[in-house]
Amino acid sequence: MGNTDRLAQLSQAGVSIWLDDLSRQRLESGNLAELVRDKHVVGVTTNPTIFANAVSHGESYDEQVRALAQHGADVHEAVRELTTTDVRNAADLLRDVYTGTGGKDGRVSIEVDPGLARDTDKTVAEAADLWKAVDRPNIFVKIPATEQGLPAITRTLAEGISVNVTLIFSVERYRAVIDAFFAGLEQAKASGHELRSIQSVASFFVSRVDTEVDKRLEAIGTDEALALRGEAAIANARLAYAAYEELFASPRWQQLREAGADPQRPLWASTGVKNPDYSDTRYVDELVVAGTVNTMPEKTLEAVADHARIEGDKVSGTAGQAQQAFDRLAAAGIDISDVFLTLENEGVEKFDKSWTELLDTVNDQLAKAKG
């Protein structure tokens, strides 16, 4: 079986393959172009951690940092310039994919400053700024699905800006995200925006759910508890898909669809496997269903190309089994609401910490450049 055949199978099964990584080095070396050409990659996601890694490793940013230092840019301006330049160049590279898929794929996601995750108004303002700064139709602005993020998602979509909703852990919160999406499109329609041009994905996080639940099952330590390791994340994603099917069959959605809207696609995020006991392609193999996106780190992409088992739709009609898995977890003593709350707080903190690291790195580089 040829190296890219499994990725081709995944793509043919209706799953859009996105790369969960971006760096200037990847752009300049031609690596991203190669992945798009040979590995069926049709989108790119970034987050503060990815940018912090990119900017601290490698010299490809030095020249731009020197120029920014000469212009007297402060650290926030510099970070904005560095990150939006990468996203703009990646968006240009993916422009043909964007055109060829009618705007669904060929997208590059850029995240609002994670320090604003709990501030609705500032998130809305920052999303509009990023959209203007990158100035490409094929980007997504990433907004976290915190309670304060939900109204920001609605307001941003209402302005005609395409949104990637990130850090979704629970099905309950995912339902609220879909509601925010519907409300945003309804408002956009009322203000005369062309709905066809507004796209959205909902990034439902996968591997982190197993990491947290497995840790708690091990702490409980009973045979019943230990037997449930590795069940939570896939069950959770399958229940999310069932919620997607239900809400996108509603009369409320039919009206938006008739007005030209495309559905907000479920996106499986955090699909790199953290536990070496598990197959390194499980969060791809087990979540194949048409009309979804799987955004993976390059290591996972390579593993999928090499040995994934793509066996068609593994999600439709699985809600009953998934619910049973959740019932067993509850019976074993797992407080699933607490799991989701913990993960959301950790997710926001993690990105905030990475953002601070990014600012520190660029600050040092500016200082060096100024001599």
Rank of each mutant, 00 (worst) to 15 (best):
D210M: 09
L366C: 01
A243Y: 08
A237H: 03
Q323K: 12
A145Q: 08
A225S: 03
H40A: 14
A308H: 04
E34M: 11
G312F: 10
G100M: 00
D113K: 02
L267A: 04
V134G: 00
L10R: 06
Q199M: 05
D285L: 04
L247T: 09
T300Y: 10
L19F: 11
G333A: 11
G103E: 13
L228H: 09
K39S: 15
V112N: 02
A180F: 07
G272V: 05
G115K: 08
A91C: 10
E28I: 12
S354I: 08
G115H: 11
E212F: 09
T84Y: 05
G43T: 10
F182Q: 01
F140K: 00
Y61K: 06
V348I: 15
A180T: 11
A202K: 03
V289M: 01
A319I: 05
E344F: 07
D352H: 07
L167N: 08
G2D: 15
R257C: 09
G371C: 05
N236Y: 04
E245T: 10
T46S: 15
P137F: 04
T222S: 13
G312H: 12
L358Y: 08
D360C: 09
S191F: 04
L19P: 08
D96I: 07
V209H: 01
P137M: 04
K353T: 12
R66Q: 13
E186G: 08
L27Y: 10
D335K: 01
N47K: 04
E186P: 01
L10M: 08
V41Y: 07
W253G: 07
D121I: 00
T300K: 05
T281E: 02
F340L: 02
A190G: 08
R309W: 00
Q321D: 07
P114E: 06
P266L: 15
V348S: 01
R216Y: 07
L130M: 05
T281V: 04
A78Q: 08
P263Q: 12
T295N: 05
T271N: 10
L27S: 09
L27M: 09
G100K: 06
L7K: 03
S23Y: 10
K215T: 13
E224H: 05
L185H: 07
A308V: 03
A290E: 11
G58W: 05
D262Y: 15
E159I: 03
V75I: 10
E147L: 14
G221C: 07
L68H: 07
D21L: 12
R24W: 10
F351M: 07
A233H: 04
G103A: 11
A90E: 06
V36K: 02
R309P: 00
A176P: 01
S11F: 08
A90W: 02
I336P: 03
A269C: 06
A330I: 11
Q187R: 15
Q70V: 15
F248Y: 15
R252N: 03
S16V: 09
G371D: 10
Q187D: 07
V304C: 02
D352R: 12
D223E: 13
G106D: 03
A331K: 12
N31C: 11
A243C: 09
A233E: 05
D214S: 01
N89F: 09
F182N: 02
L157Y: 03
V79C: 14
V206W: 01
L228I: 04
R6V: 06
T295M: 05
T361R: 13
S354K: 14
G192I: 02
L359Y: 12
R24L: 14
E212Q: 13
